[in-house]
């Protein structure tokens, strides 16, 4: 059997919605056959569902604006950004249009729009094709940001995003497209909470009290898992990893509850250090559960630099397995 990757799972979710819901349309650059999208996620779908996929001109802003209009008038459009970096071109359409309508019209309308955005580095695409720009949108009330990991059911998540009456930006870690989706692991017990956008809860302590809570999302999860498996085997540090799929708005209760048990917090994201998601998570935990902490929280992030293309340079800027292990050491030593 072909292995189920996150990429295939997303494709399966899109196929299911196209089959089930005639109001679903997919729009994006080069998404139709024979090309099937820059990452080949939609390959085959335009042949299977004639008329339901539309190749768009290279107009990211126009595409998000037009699909916002479609969503306001009864359709459920899904946009594929060729690279998530290009979401910067559609910032006005997301922030000043899609995210505003429902609230500013006092709840009279809905905008069931999904924008899929392949984000993240480690593929050598350089400064303008590797970023994690979801951070630019996290503080937009009315915009939901969802990010699958291999420990989520990505087909269900994209389905939930399409069913959602609110605009959703769906962050697809480029590196995850080829990663196997598995909700069982030899190293971790995996549980899920909060449907339809569950957090994946990974525990390697097998019934015992974990020493540290590690919070992360999207393409950082496999790196965190690898680091924490090694740490468990070599240093016997047990952890509880929390990977919410809905990264904004963020429900902090699960994180606080875990930190109250472990007393230690690491938050990991791929984006640059300053003004990020990790900073927000740390701030919320400190504000509400600070008295339960036995060690200062530690952030694992990229550096405050653009992303270089050459692999050793990119490796230097992005957080890797060793960075996570360094953070564990830091948080355990205190």
């Amino acid at each position: 059997m072909e292995k189920l990757t996150v990429g295939r799972a997303i494709a399966a979710g899109l196929r299911k919605k196209l089959a089930d819901d005639p109001t679903v349309y997919l729009l994006g650059e080069d998404i139709c056959d024979p090309y099937g999208g820059a990452f080949r996620i939609t390959r085959g779908l335009s042949s299977e569902f004639p008329g339901r996929l539309i190749n768009v001109p290279i107009s990211e802003a126009g595409t998000v604006a037009v699909t916002t209009g479609m969503a306001l008038r009864g359709l459920r459009p899904v946009v594929e950004m060729m690279f998530g970096d290009f979401i910067a071109l559609a910032a006005d359409q997301l922030i000043n249009h899609a995210a505003k309508f429902s609230w500013m019209y006092n709840g009279a309308v809905s905008v069931p729009l999904v924008v899929r955005a392949p984000m993240g580095g480690r593929r050598g695409y350089g400064p303008t094709h590797s970023q994690s720009l979801e951070r630019m949108l996290l503080s937009t009330p009315g915009l939901r940001i969802v990010a699958p990991t291999p420990r989520h059911d990505a087909a269900a998540l994209i389905g939930a995003a399409i069913d959602d009456p609110n605009p959703v930006v769906f962050i697809e870690g480029k590196l995850l497209y080829a990663a196997e989706q598995a909700t069982v692991s030899e190293h971790y017990d995996i549980a899920h909470t909060h449907p339809p956008y569950p957090a994946a809860v990974l525990n390697n302590a097998a019934g015992e009290q974990p020493n540290v809570t590690v919070v992360t999302y999207g393409p950082m999860l496999p790196i965190v898992e690898e680091a924490m498996t090694a740490t468990f085997n070599e240093d016997e540090v047990a952890c509880e990893i929390l990977a919410p799929s809905e990264i904004a708005p963020l429900d902090t209760a699960l994180i606080g509850e875990s930190v109250a048990r472990t007393g230690r917090l690491i938050v990991a994201e791929e984006g640059p250090r300053s003004w990020g998601w990790a900073a927000e998570v740390v701030a919320r935990v400190v504000e509400r559960w600070g008295d339960r902490l036995v060690a200062r929280p530690v952030r694992v992030t990229g550096r405050d630099l653009p992303l270089p293309t050459a692999r050793p340079l990119e490796d230097h800027v992005l957080p890797g397995v060793e960075t996570v292990r360094g953070a564990v050491e830091k948080v355990m030593l205190q």
Binding site: Y25, A65, T68, G69, M70, L72, G74, L75, N96, F101
Partner: peptide, 29 residues
């Protein structure tokens, strides 16, 4: 920023012409 049935305004110059284009495609579809 006004709304009434089938009537939508916004304060971003040019923005609603583009949103309106999508609305028209939805009506057609």
């Amino acid at each position: 920023h006004l709304y009434a049935e089938n009537f939508y305004t916004n304060g971003i110059t040019g923005g609603m012409g583009a949103v309106g284009t999508g609305m028209a495609l939805a009506e057609k579809q």
